[in-house]
Simulated scan of single mutants.
Amino acid sequence: MSIKNVHHVCIQTECYKESLEFYTKILGFEIVKETKNFHNREYNTWIKLGDFMIELQTNKLGDKLNNWNSLNAGIVHMCFMSCDVKEEYLRIKGMGYNNFKNKNGEDVYKVEDGYLFKVKAPEGTEIEIRDLQI
């Protein structure tokens, strides 16, 4: 097989500035390349965390995007590993970001032998942060 690894996922957003700030300031991605007026889009931007990249782009001019829904087929969330989930949760919350997915009254909860939490990006992408390798 010639496939080597995951290169990127593409996320469309109608709230570009807020999404870019979330991924760079909250999650620590760095901007690799930001292109204005890209194929009928206001922005197409490549951001990177380690070897993983996101292509963050605005909707095509005149198009209205559908809201994210956990009942959509396909990718439901992205997951990032953390050495200390509770510390990472407190770091994000301490930055004033509060759009967490609550489960049974808890933002951080135990799953199998580890912990995780889910935070929603401004455009609606669900991000899971966990500490247990599968």
Rank of each mutant, 00 (worst) to 15 (best):
N59R: 14
C83T: 14
K93E: 12
V108F: 07
D113R: 06
K64W: 09
G62T: 02
Q57N: 12
M95E: 10
I129A: 07
G28A: 09
I92Q: 02
H7T: 13
E126H: 06
H8W: 04
V108N: 01
N37D: 03
N44G: 13
Q12P: 05
M1I: 06
M53C: 09
K103S: 10
R91P: 00
C15T: 11
V85G: 00
C79M: 05
N99V: 03
A73G: 13
L61N: 14
Q12F: 12
I26V: 02
G124S: 09
N102E: 14
L56Y: 07
Y97N: 05
H8I: 00
K110D: 10
I92V: 10
C10N: 13
Q133V: 06
L65G: 14
E87N: 08
C10T: 15
E18R: 09
L56P: 09
A121F: 10
L27K: 07
V9Q: 03
E30V: 06
L71P: 12
W46Q: 03
H8P: 06
K103G: 03
M81L: 14
L49A: 12
I11A: 00
K86F: 05
G50L: 14
F100H: 02
E21H: 08
C79F: 11
E42Q: 14
I11G: 04
K93V: 07
D113W: 12
L116N: 06
R91N: 09
K17T: 11
E55S: 09
E21G: 03
C15W: 04
T35L: 07
N67D: 06
I129S: 07
N44Q: 12
M53Y: 05
L71N: 13
V6Q: 00
Y23Q: 05
W68D: 05
E88M: 11
K101V: 12
P122I: 05
N5F: 04
N66Q: 09
